[in-house]
Structures are given as C-alpha cells and as structure tokens.
Amino acid sequence: MDIRELRNCLGRFATGVTVVTCNDGGHCHGLTANSFTSVSLDPPLVLVSIDRETKAFDKLKDNRFIVNILSADQQETAMHFAGKTCEELPFEWNETEYGHRIKGSLAYVECEPWAEYDGGDHVLFLGKVVNFDYQDGEPLGFYSGKFSKIVQE
C-alpha cells in the first residue's frame, strides 16, 4: 500500500484544528492536532490521537490536558505548535488549575486522563471533560494537507 496515497485519501476528510496542551514539571507543552472527537456525553469523554514521534507525546501520558479548538485567525498559532515556532509567541496564555489554555480560541475542553489505547504509530488518549467553554466565531479548518475555511450556511 502506498502510504502517501493513503494519507492523501484520508486528507479528503475536512477537520477542525486544535492545539492540545499539558503541563509537566512546571513547563507547558503543546502540539497541533486535527484528530479530535467527542466520544461520550455520559460520562463526558473526548479523544485525541497523538503521533508517538511528537516531542510532547511523553508529556501526555497519565496527564491532564486541554484541547484548544482554534479560530480561523489562529493559523500562526497552529503552525507554532506544529513545529514552525515563532520567536515571539503568536498567542497569549490563560493559566488554569488544569494547565495552559490559548486565549482567543473558539473553545477549550479541559480533561483528566481517562484511558489510553494503542493506535499503531499513534496513541489514542481519552480524557474525561472536567471544564469547557466556547464562543462564536469562524473555525480554522484543515483539508487536503492545507488550512482552509469552513463555510457555514
């Protein structure tokens, strides 16, 4: 199977863009992820799929985490956490008892660790939602390997 072509095929599924953050040893870590989904409302569970090769991967194990759902004007923030770091941060932090949230995100979901599952070259982290909030705005989309707009009709 041609892995690149499989990736191109799966890229035809449009998603939103998130930054998953967690604290470890007094430091905040984060990564950009578009593999995020709601799993259950009772109990309230969400899932993020994280590549084992990312720098922040080990920090998530058995740790609280926050899913920051990005708005259309936060593309630079997404790139920062995807490894294209900026000298001057393109965002501001809001610190909470669960970690650091990205100010201005469309939504955030604060989670306690619930379960982890092997997903091949990824690990599926389930988090129990303990706090959340959201606001109106335009979401940052991702389609076919590029940022895109999500049009609401």
Rank of each mutant, 00 (worst) to 15 (best):
S148Y: 04
S71G: 08
C111G: 01
G104H: 10
D73N: 10
F91V: 04
V39R: 09
V151H: 02
F57K: 15
G30L: 13
G16D: 09
Y98G: 05
H27E: 11
V46N: 12
A78K: 01
S148L: 11
C9D: 14
I102Q: 09
D51Q: 12
Y117M: 01
L45G: 13
A72R: 09
A115L: 09
F81D: 00
R64Y: 05
L106T: 01
A72C: 14
E153F: 07
N131Y: 12
V123F: 06
T32G: 11
D42I: 07
G119D: 00
A82I: 00
K55D: 11
D58M: 11
Q135V: 05
Q75S: 15
I102P: 02
D24H: 14
C111H: 03
K84T: 04
V19N: 10
Y143D: 00
F125W: 01
L10K: 07
Q74I: 04
C28H: 15
P113N: 01
F142N: 04
H122M: 00
G145S: 05
D62I: 10
A14G: 15
S38Y: 11
M79W: 14
Y143K: 01
T77P: 06
T77L: 09
K61Y: 10
G119A: 04
H100C: 07
E138M: 12
V123Q: 07
T85D: 05
L6Q: 05
P43R: 08
V46K: 15
D42S: 06
D118Q: 00
R7I: 06
Q74L: 07
N94T: 14
A115T: 03
M79K: 09
V109Q: 03
R52M: 11
A72Y: 04
E53A: 10
D2R: 03
N8P: 06
E76H: 14
T18H: 12
D62S: 07
A14D: 14
G141L: 15
I3G: 07
F142T: 03
S49K: 10
F125K: 00
E88K: 14
L60Q: 08
R4D: 05
E92I: 12
I3Y: 14
E95G: 12
A107Q: 02
T18V: 09
G83A: 02
C111D: 00
D51R: 15
W114G: 03
G11K: 03
H27S: 11
W93Q: 12
P90R: 02
N131T: 07
D42V: 05
G25C: 06
P113E: 02
G11T: 15
S35I: 06
R7G: 14
H29D: 15
I66F: 10
A56C: 13
E138V: 05
L6Y: 05
T32Q: 08
N68Y: 09
V123C: 10
S71F: 13
P113A: 03
S49I: 14
Y134M: 11
K84D: 02
L89T: 12
E138A: 11
M79G: 02
V39W: 13
M79P: 08
G141M: 10
G104D: 06
N131D: 07
Y143G: 03
T85W: 06
G119R: 02
G127D: 06
A78C: 03
E88R: 09
L45S: 11
D51G: 11
L140F: 14
S148E: 01
P139F: 11
A72I: 13
G141S: 15
V123W: 12
V17Q: 12
A78M: 01
